[in-house]
Amino acid sequence: MTQETSTQTSSAAPFPPVLTRGADAETCADPSSVMTLLADSDSTADGFTSYRSTFAKGAVGAPAHFHTKATEIFFVLSGSLRVLVGEEITVLEAGDFLAVPPHTPHAFAAAPGCEADVLFVFTPGMGRFDYLRLLGRVMRGEADAKALAESAERFDNHYVDSPVWRAALEAST
């Protein structure tokens, strides 16, 4: 039997490796979560955007919304995250993975009585760190909520009404 050696051709990577040291990562905070900004599209040639959110117990997270271009990926590091996908609500536990494709309404919050630590990835990326900074300012009352609506196209974040999600949040208060 003859053993063949495979040769791999080398091609240029679309962007250089991205390393963000935890101690050096920028954080954004709002009253219910801390977001650690890991990699934005400017460093990944629009390949992806990634950040980590640590939600306090009972944190409301994000209202119902969808993206027209990006797939949003959730990986729960610890705790429990309640999510809406379409019209269905489920709870993600530590180790659970969820990928929400474009045009799919979704929302998320810490599960009732729980904290959650979640890694988020958007692909393709599109400069979402400025959105997260704006969101923190709005949540802290430092910016008008109209700024979020006005930024929908720029950040590919389109809010929608979800009676299912609204009812779930009201039931847990």
Rank of each mutant, 00 (worst) to 15 (best):
M1D: 13
Q8G: 13
T9V: 12
S10I: 14
P14I: 08
P14Y: 04
F15H: 11
P17G: 00
P17D: 11
T20Q: 06
G22M: 09
A25P: 02
T27W: 03
P31G: 02
P31R: 05
P31C: 01
M35S: 15
D42C: 02
D42K: 08
A45H: 10
G47R: 04
F48T: 00
S50D: 07
R52T: 03
T54E: 15
F55E: 03
V60T: 15
V60N: 11
H67K: 05
I73W: 11
L77H: 12
S80K: 15
L84A: 09
G86W: 05
E88A: 15
L92S: 02
D96G: 02
D96I: 00
F97S: 09
L98Q: 06
A99K: 04
A99E: 09
H103C: 11
H106V: 08
A109S: 08
A111Y: 00
P112L: 04
D117H: 05
D117T: 09
V118I: 01
L119N: 10
G127P: 09
G127Y: 12
G127M: 08
L132N: 05
G136D: 01
R137E: 13
M139D: 13
G141R: 08
E142C: 00
E142W: 06
D144G: 01
K146E: 15
S151A: 15
A152D: 14
A152L: 02
D156Y: 06
N157I: 04
H158D: 12
D161N: 13
V164G: 01
R166T: 07
E170N: 04
T173S: 08
